[in-house]
Amino acid sequence: MGLMLSAALRDAMAGWLSHLKALDGASANTLRAYEADVSGFLAFLAAHHGESLGVARLAAASQTDMRAFLAHTRGRGVSARSAARILSSVKGFIRWLAEREGFDPTAVLSARSPRYQRKLPRPLSEDAARAVIGTVADMAREDWIAARDAAVVTLLYGCGLRISEALSLTGAEASLPTVLRIRGKGGKERIVPVLPAAQAAVADYVRLCPFPLAGEPASPLFRGARGGALNQRLIARSMERARGALGLPASATPHALRHSFATHLLAAGGDLRAIQELLGHASLSTTQAYTAVDTARLMEVYEKAHRRA
Rank of each mutant, 00 (worst) to 15 (best):
A166V: 03
L120D: 13
W144R: 04
E216T: 15
L31F: 08
L176A: 06
A146R: 02
E165A: 04
S89R: 00
S88R: 05
I145L: 07
L5H: 06
G54F: 08
L42A: 09
V179I: 04
D204G: 03
V108A: 05
N29P: 01
L70V: 13
R10I: 08
A80K: 03
L53G: 11
Y157C: 04
L278D: 05
V132E: 10
S39F: 11
L230G: 10
G40N: 12
R100M: 02
D127W: 10
L221I: 08
D104W: 02
A61T: 12
L248P: 06
N231L: 14
T291W: 11
L167T: 01
L221Q: 04
R118D: 03
E240Y: 08
A59D: 06
M239H: 10
C209Y: 10
K188Y: 00
L221K: 06
F261W: 08
L155D: 01
I235L: 13
A12E: 07
V38N: 09
A268Q: 14
G270D: 04
D24G: 01
D143Q: 07
L109Y: 03
A71W: 04
E99A: 13
E300P: 00
R190I: 09
A166L: 02
R95D: 07
N29T: 09
A84C: 01
D37P: 10
P217L: 14
L3F: 01
Q232H: 15
V38Q: 08
G227K: 13
P177T: 10
Q63Y: 00
H49W: 12
E165V: 02
L284T: 13
Q63T: 12
Q232F: 13
L53M: 12
R183D: 00
E189T: 08
A172W: 04
T178N: 05
A289M: 12
A172D: 11
S168K: 04
F261P: 08
D204H: 09
N29K: 08
E51L: 07
A250S: 15
A218V: 03
L221E: 06
S18N: 14
F44C: 12
V179P: 00
W16L: 05
S52V: 12
G25K: 02
A80W: 03
R74N: 00
L234A: 15
G224W: 14
M13I: 11
G2Q: 13
A296H: 13
A36S: 14
G50F: 13
D104M: 02
S110L: 12
R190D: 10
A131I: 12
G228D: 14
L266T: 03
R241I: 03
Y302F: 14
L87D: 00
L272H: 05
M239P: 10
D294A: 13
L195S: 05
A129S: 14
P210L: 11
A131T: 10
G2S: 14
L234E: 14
R130Q: 14
L53W: 11
S62L: 05
H48G: 03
D65C: 06
R85S: 00
G77A: 06
L5F: 09
